[in-house]
């Protein structure tokens, strides 16, 4: 899922300083699962903002909304009938949701209420960790199902570097060395013979480096 976490309240208060009537829009997708932008988080944020604003004698009216997904147009459009009654939207969807709202509601300022962090997994309740950098050219079949781009701090393709000690990365003892994990897996899978293969320089064209990306599926377009 896409993992996000709440922005500080003060930062959001500053964004909406000039407004008196806003929508807070959550999303039932990834950010609900990672407890950053679902229905409950909409309620909590709305309550905190109302309290903060009333305390400074500048009350705020909030419509609390949770969209099925902010990254699909049909769900955004459900806001259409009432969006015009409000001065701004704070979206606590991911960065894609915030931007898609902005594209669809040209006249409304859209503010991000969370920071979008990474594509990751729930390692245990309340703890999420990065797994994928969306480089656009998956090589997990070569690396035992563990990604050197996302899991190695230097994204090196021939690791581990000289900073790997006792299974952790040189940057932090709490960060596992991605290449140690890869080697452990390759060994368990009896695939170490591929280790000494020189890998060509990776093409980053399919990553963000090639410019904003788009996928067109002719079989699905109308």
């Amino acid at each position: 899922m896409i993992v996000g976490n709440a922005k500080p309240l003060a930062e959001i208060l500053q964004m909406i300083e000039s407004h008196q009537k806003i929508i807070i829009a959550g999303c039932h997708g990834c950010v609900t699962v990672c407890r950053a932008g679902g229905e409950k988080e909409v309620q909590i944020l709305a309550s905190a903002l109302r309290l903060a604003r009333e305390a400074v004698k500048n009350p705020l009216e909030i419509r609390e909304v949770s969209l099925e997904r902010q990254c699909d147009p049909e769900y955004l459009e459900t806001m259409r009938p009432y969006a015009g009654d409000y001065q701004a939207v704070v979206s606590i969807g991911c960065g894609a949701g915030v931007q898609f709202l902005a594209e669809h509601f040209a006249a409304l300022p859209i503010y991000p209420g969370i920071n979008t962090n990474f594509i990751g997994v729930t390692e245990r309740q309340g703890e999420w960790a990065e797994r994928c950098q969306a480089c656009g050219d998956c090589m997990l079949h070569l690396t035992g199902g563990i990604c050197p781009i996302a899991r190695c701090s230097k994204s090196i393709l021939h690791g581990p570097c000289g900073g790997s000690v006792d299974g952790h990365c040189e940057i932090d003892k709490d960060v596992p060395c991605g290449w140690q994990l890869i080697i452990d897996r390759l060994r368990a899978l009896n695939m170490m013979d591929s280790y000494e293969k020189l890998r060509p320089m990776k093409s980053w064209r399919t990553s963000r480096d090639g410019g904003p990306r788009r996928i067109v599926r002719e079989d699905l377009t109308r």
């Binding site: 090196i156 570097c161 060509p200 320089m201």
Partner: peptide, 13 residues
């Protein structure tokens, strides 16, 4: 942090 290529790829290059 750039790491477009790694040190081994730099040698090869």
């Amino acid at each position: 942090n750039v790491h477009d290529i790694d040190s081994i790829q730099l040698l090869d290059l």
